[in-house]
Write a protein that binds this DNA or RNA. Sequence first.
DNA 1: ACCTGAACACCGTTCAAGT
DNA 2: ACCTGAACACCGTTCAAGT
Lengths: 199, 199
Amino acid sequence: MARKQAVRREPLDPQRIYQAALDFMDVHGVDELSMRKLAALLDVDAMAIYHHVPGKQALLQGVYQVVLEELPLEEHAEVRWQDALRTLGMRFYRLAQRHPRIFPYLLSSQYGTPRELEIYQFIQQALRRTGLSDQDRLYATRALYTFAIGLASAAPTGLRLRPLYGEDSPSQPCQSSEDEVAFSIDLLIAGIERWLEER
Amino acid sequence: MARKQAVRREPLDPQRIYQAALDFMDVHGVDELSMRKLAALLDVDAMAIYHHVPGKQALLQGVYQVVLEELPLEEHAEVRWQDALRTLGMRFYRLAQRHPRIFPYLLSSQYGTPRELEIYQFIQQALRRTGLSDQDRLYATRALYTFAIGLASAAPTGLRLRPLYGEDSPSQPCQSSEDEVAFSIDLLIAGIERWLEER
DNA sequence: ACCTGAACACCGTTCAAGT
DNA sequence: ACCTGAACACCGTTCAAGT
């Protein structure tokens, strides 16, 4: 007991709190998390957390930021914009798949994180190489970003239609796959290419 | 007081409960809703609701279904698939705009409603007219549906990036518009058309 | 500086009881 | 059949106090 207290005495910073919350939610789901349980997990009084994180909303935002930081964003400028976007999309999909219980929920919590902005700018940057007009590039960026949000929200649970189909309709779409996501991204890229040809 | 009780004595059915919850959440947001407040709104003891709706999760699902039923789905078979999809997309966008406080949240509540399935099948039906293979049509349907979810989740709040930009960057994307959504949908449609040309 | 503990104003939900 | 009211096991958060 006294031993346990002695073992862990780093003084509880935001990163450690976010990480513990993330780990817990990955296992138990978003609804199960409470400030009190999280505190117990960190071996600390419930209210200690409030000295490092302003409240629950901020906690969830912090977790979201931590998750998004798992997404690699190095830019290789020599790469075709099509490949840059395809890679980003697939990575984003895999990230959402790694955290299926929390991604849809975090997306709904209205306020963005800095990392989200970086992703947005990455897309914008890649599209700069297409020669689209400013207006069209803005629109295309948002189309891609919107799609990514849909992907994160829907992919983990197979488009949320699982409970509506009977078990016995194997041809129905109950699992998303890498193939499918690649197809979707290519659809958007092909749309942009066609727009470029016709402009 | 006794008068008030006399005025409203229809005996409280699920539809009326869902509608009251929807109206409340449109004004006050999702987080503000509680079973107790909803009961007060319906002029009823808190626990009366449980005789018509199994619990809060079911309540939210019911509300989601009610909202989605606002989306018109009549099929005009003679219309080009491109136009059918464009119309559906724009209507879905406008619906999300009419309920900006609740759409992103309802999307995150994991389990689908029957109406969601109908929308999915509407898309599938429209794409049947393209001549895509079964596999490709399935993929394309899901790409479009995924995009719709992103739209509903992101559009109401301007892609959730608002707080990340300074007030003073007018060129930045803080409002989605009909134009922009139309552009996005056309991008996906163009992608499908190109796929058809190349197959 | 960092953490604690009691307290406040709520929750969703169960269950026995009322009419 | 439909509703009520008390009770249970929780919440997030505030605030004064401890070390």
